[in-house]
Design a protein around this nucleic acid. Structure first.
Length: 305
DNA sequence: ACTATTTCCTGGATGC
DNA sequence: TGCATCCAGGAAATAG
């Protein structure tokens, strides 16, 4: 399931391959459509837009777009000096790192949440369209961007402007003091707190379990009961696990593949997730599985207190 | 204001 | 073999 490292891997692949490309047309199929914006609004926003950048925010993929309002995809006319000047200004903006916003371009964002089983694939049009393909964006380069999601928990959305923000802190950017403050006074199990996207954005079931194992903290411990030393261990464990997982291209435990359709490798490094009854890699005690907030939680009773 | 539970969805695993 | 049932889980909705 795509969590922070998986979404980061996909975003990097997309950024490398399709940044600068232009979306020429959009097809949205299947009903009910997995959308937060209407199909019409998504098509209207994406068609003719240039992809300036692709990045990750929490578990969301964010496509930063730039478009010429009221001037879909046809080239800018240069019949007058004024038009030429404006075209140059627009060009400068597109090639420049972050120019001032001109009158002739506007920014928009395509926000994609992959849910449990979603993938965003770069494909050539001649390759077979896999089952459960819910949206296809055709690019000027001739390639296609395909949103595939068997379990349909993913969501597509467009926004005007460039202000999409995560609901919670980025685990890899947050400082220790703010991290510790997130859990202060919370009576919920630390496992639930780690999954709460309004606190930290991007951690899901796999990396919550792995982080707690590395930090030596039982998943049922009340968040507020963690000592400063434990919070520090958790802080470091979260960053370590996420960074290692990103370096390994994510964990492919179910359907996850990156933008090129390749699996990750971090599933082989998981120490407790999905290892119920197997011996703990550190002490040999059997890994346990309990349910917290309706989610499987894997842990070692010897190593975690 | 918080916390806990239910719901959505479908392929794969399990059970009889 | 076949059919029914269960399970996985992110996040929004609902309940307490």
């Amino acid at each position: 399931m795509p969590e922070l490292p998986e979404v980061e891997t996909i975003a990097r692949g997309l950024q490398r391959q399709i940044a600068g490309d232009v979306i020429e047309s959009v097809w949205i199929g299947s009903k009910p459509e997995p959308l937060k914006s209407s199909a019409r609004e998504i098509a209207r926003t994406l068609e003719g837009a240039q992809i300036i950048a692709v990045r990750r925010v929490g578990k969301h993929l964010v496509f930063d777009l730039r478009r010429q309002p009221g001037n879909l995809s046809q080239p800018v006319r240069r019949s007058t000096k004024k038009a030429a000047r404006m075209a140059n200004a627009a060009k400068k903006e597109i090639s420049g790192a972050r120019g001032t916003l001109g009158r002739r371009t506007e920014t928009a964002q395509w926000i994609v949440h992959l849910g449990m089983t979603g993938s965003m694939l770069i494909a050539l049009p001649e390759t077979a369209i896999p089952p459960h393909t819910h949206a296809i964006a055709t690019l000027r380069s001739g390639r296609e961007l395909r949103f595939v999601d068997p379990r349909r928990f993913g969501r597509l959305q467009v926004r005007h402007g460039d202000g999409f923000a995560a609901t919670g802190r980025e685990p890899l950017d947050v400082g220790m003091e703010i991290f510790a403050a997130l859990f202060r006074g919370r009576n919920t199990p630390i496992k639930s707190a780690l999954l709460n996207q309004k606190l930290l954005a991007g951690i899901g079931n796999i990396y919550a379990d792995e982080s707690l194992f590395r930090a030596g903290i039982r998943p049922r411990r009340r968040a507020a009961s963690l000592t400063r030393a434990e919070l520090l261990r958790l802080y470091e464990a979260v960053q370590q696990v996420l960074n290692e997982a990103i370096a390994a291209g994510g964990s492919s435990v179910s359907d996850y593949v990156n933008a090129e359709g390749e699996a990750g490798l971090f599933q082989f490094e998981l120490r407790v997730y999905g290892r119920e009854a197997e011996p703990c890699a550190v002490c040999g005690a059997p890994v346990r599985r309990i349910v917290i907030a309706g989610r499987s939680s894997h842990w070692c009773a010897q190593c975690q207190k």
